[in-house]
Simulated assay, not measured.
Amino acid sequence: MTKIIAVLNHKGGVGKTTTTINLAAALQQKKKRVLLIDMDGQANLTESCGLSIEEEQTVYGAMKGEYPLPAFELGNGLSVVPSCLDLSAAESELINEPGRELILKGLIAKLLESRKFDYILIDCPPSLGLLTLNALTSADFLIIPVQAQFLAMRGMAKITNVIEIVKTRLNPNLNIGGIVITQFDKRKTLNKSVAELISESFCDKVFKTVIRDNVALAEAPIKGLNIFEYNKNSNGAKDYMELAKEVLKLK
């Protein structure tokens, strides 16, 4: 069975795209077949994977019903459905479509008839609009990256609330796979305090693995590489491999 994981936080700059790409790469290192779907109109994941935001076929055209979901296979074994800058317009363009929250779910189901994947990871936009709803309606699990910063806890209640509404109305199978603390520096008292607060508030929903602040994680996407291709001995690579081991245990 394919496990579908949405990576979401409506706050920007928390390491959402970094987590999506490098968790996917770690799962692939564990011999899993992984597809990435870029649902963010900023197309950061697409560019970080070395693809152009000018690709002829993207998730945008697929969402509009122009063609099936286009999954490009990268040289490293991962497959990617790219985004484009026009995707942001989809929110308003699809607003009157019947079953608009279920478009992505239908596209994924169709793709899985001909392609086999163990994991599908969806990089959500930093908002709780229609594109994010499509991801949540398609997903089995939700991973929430949270920065070890004071304002990180703000908005967690909103995400939790949206998840409950989606579970009730659209996708009863949706569960929080885990909250992952990112950009963590153990030398900073504030980072440690926030990490403790998150752990106290969400208990067993917090992954044991924390993603340490690591310059290699910021450098890798500039080269269009994941952390294992860029520097497999870095703390970033070690942390995402540990996170992948926890994700493999999700049931």
Results as ranks from 00 to 15, higher is better:
E73C: 11
L112H: 01
N226E: 01
Q149M: 03
K205M: 09
Q57C: 06
K238H: 13
F150R: 10
K188I: 04
N214E: 08
S92M: 15
L151P: 02
K232F: 14
V180P: 00
M241V: 09
Y119G: 06
Q29A: 10
K223S: 14
L23A: 00
E164Y: 07
A148E: 01
A71W: 04
E246F: 08
G75N: 14
I122M: 13
Y230R: 02
P68H: 04
A71G: 07
R100G: 11
M63K: 06
S193R: 14
T2D: 07
L190Q: 11
I159M: 05
V247S: 03
I95K: 10
F141W: 14
I122W: 11
A148P: 06
I144L: 03
T19H: 03
A216Q: 13
L128V: 04
I5L: 00
I122A: 06
K64Y: 06
R212Q: 06
E55W: 03
L250P: 09
E54G: 03
L130P: 02
L225V: 01
I227T: 04
E54M: 12
L51D: 07
I122Q: 02
S79M: 09
L248D: 11
N231V: 03
K186S: 13
L94R: 00
I143Q: 06
V34D: 05
N233E: 13
G75T: 12
P82K: 05
R115N: 12
G155Q: 01
L27F: 07
S193K: 15
V80E: 09
L170W: 12
A218P: 02
K105R: 15
K11L: 07
K64G: 02
K32I: 05
I37Q: 05
A139Y: 10
I159A: 08
I179L: 14
K64H: 15
L45P: 02
E47Y: 12
L74M: 11
T168K: 15
N96T: 15
M156V: 04
L78K: 01
P68G: 12
N9D: 05
I122N: 10
